[in-house]
Simulated assay, not measured.
Amino acid sequence: MSRQIVLDTETTGLSVVDGDRVIELGCVELLNRKLTGNNLHLYFNADRDSHEDALRVHGITTEFLADKPRFHEKAEEIRAYLEGAELIIHNAPFDMGFLNKEFERVGMPPLSSMVSGVLDSLLMARDLFPGKRNSLDALCDRLEVDNSGRDLHGALLDAELLADVYINMTRGQEQLLSSDSMASNNKSGSAVVIKKVDFAQFDLPVILPSDVELAAHEDVLAQLDKSSGGKTIWRKLA
């Protein structure tokens, strides 16, 4: 059974090096790509104020957090919840950096040692939609995920939206079912047999692009490079 956790945090600021802390953690559980409702949502008293810019983003005040637990009080609960799962995080290095520092403060190993892997949905989106905006809001608009209730950032809400975005971005994986799953969906009750095809038996022709097609392709690459501000990897390699 595939267990994935879609995770998001809110923090007092952008710099873990300068002592910014995690103040909210939101986790949404997926089992075999299905939402289970077994979510984890925690606020933390960070013993410091949020920067003004951060406060404008998440709206979580120091007064609201005054009676919330410190991270160390919930660290073991978080570890137990995340253990063995694959994490799905949008811009994973940011959240991972903050959580690793929180675990380090309480003498616990880094997050990567607790989980089976980490999938960065931002990198996935950049591969799927090169040259386009791939913020969570942009992906919600593109994939028709309703984010009308998102006036401020919130870790649980953002994790729930990201779960929907991830499921939409990976729709094709629904076809990658196990033989047991396919057999259970077969109305006749018989197992589904997938026939393998040996492509070596075919003499496949190689069709080269014309000059017009090559020019059109180069034009598309140039447009992508321009829209990304000259950050396309193929230009750098060239």
Results as ranks from 00 to 15, higher is better:
141 D>T: 15
6 V>W: 01
30 L>V: 02
153 H>M: 05
155 A>Q: 03
90 H>F: 07
174 E>M: 13
188 S>T: 14
173 Q>T: 09
37 G>F: 15
72 H>Q: 14
12 T>V: 05
108 M>L: 15
20 D>Y: 03
107 G>L: 03
109 P>F: 09
108 M>D: 08
196 K>A: 12
61 T>N: 00
190 S>F: 13
209 P>F: 05
22 V>W: 00
223 Q>C: 08
41 H>V: 04
150 R>M: 02
113 S>W: 06
171 R>V: 07
47 D>G: 05
200 A>N: 15
226 K>G: 08
112 S>K: 11
206 V>P: 03
128 L>W: 06
34 K>Q: 15
5 I>K: 07
9 T>G: 09
141 D>H: 10
169 M>V: 07
9 T>E: 10
192 V>P: 10
93 P>K: 06
35 L>V: 14
31 L>V: 15
216 A>I: 05
186 N>K: 08
231 K>V: 14
41 H>F: 10
117 G>H: 06
167 I>F: 00
4 Q>I: 02
137 D>L: 06
132 K>L: 15
142 R>F: 00
12 T>R: 03
167 I>E: 01
97 G>W: 00
168 N>A: 13
220 V>W: 08
105 R>V: 13
90 H>V: 07
185 N>G: 10
100 N>C: 04
197 V>C: 10
85 A>M: 07
56 R>W: 12
68 K>G: 06
39 N>E: 02
20 D>I: 00
146 D>N: 02
108 M>Y: 13
230 G>K: 13
15 S>G: 06
88 I>V: 09
63 E>S: 02
50 S>R: 07
4 Q>D: 10
46 A>C: 01
86 E>Q: 08
176 L>F: 14
120 D>L: 01
158 D>A: 01
54 A>Y: 04
142 R>K: 12
214 L>M: 15
87 L>Y: 04
42 L>G: 03
175 Q>Y: 11
126 R>C: 04
64 F>Q: 12
177 L>T: 05
126 R>P: 09
228 S>I: 03
85 A>Q: 00
217 H>N: 13
219 D>C: 10
127 D>V: 10
132 K>F: 03
192 V>Y: 05
24 E>M: 04
92 A>S: 03
137 D>V: 12
67 D>P: 06
66 A>H: 15
139 L>E: 05
96 M>C: 02
109 P>I: 11
153 H>L: 04
133 R>E: 08
2 S>A: 09
105 R>W: 14
173 Q>D: 15
68 K>R: 13
41 H>Q: 10
148 S>D: 07
235 R>F: 13
59 G>C: 07
220 V>D: 03
65 L>M: 05
184 S>I: 07
148 S>V: 08
119 L>M: 11
213 E>Q: 11
119 L>S: 10
187 K>V: 11
5 I>Q: 04
165 V>L: 01
119 L>G: 03
60 I>M: 08
79 R>Q: 11
43 Y>I: 12
69 P>Q: 12
68 K>D: 04
183 A>L: 04
62 T>D: 08
117 G>E: 01
229 G>A: 11
222 A>P: 12
40 L>G: 06
64 F>C: 12
139 L>K: 02
184 S>Q: 09
141 D>R: 12
8 D>Q: 02
160 E>S: 01
159 A>N: 00
138 A>T: 00
149 G>I: 14
34 K>R: 14
219 D>W: 09
47 D>C: 09
63 E>P: 01
219 D>Q: 15
222 A>I: 14
61 T>E: 00
45 N>H: 06
69 P>W: 08
13 G>A: 09
185 N>C: 10
207 I>R: 06
224 L>R: 03
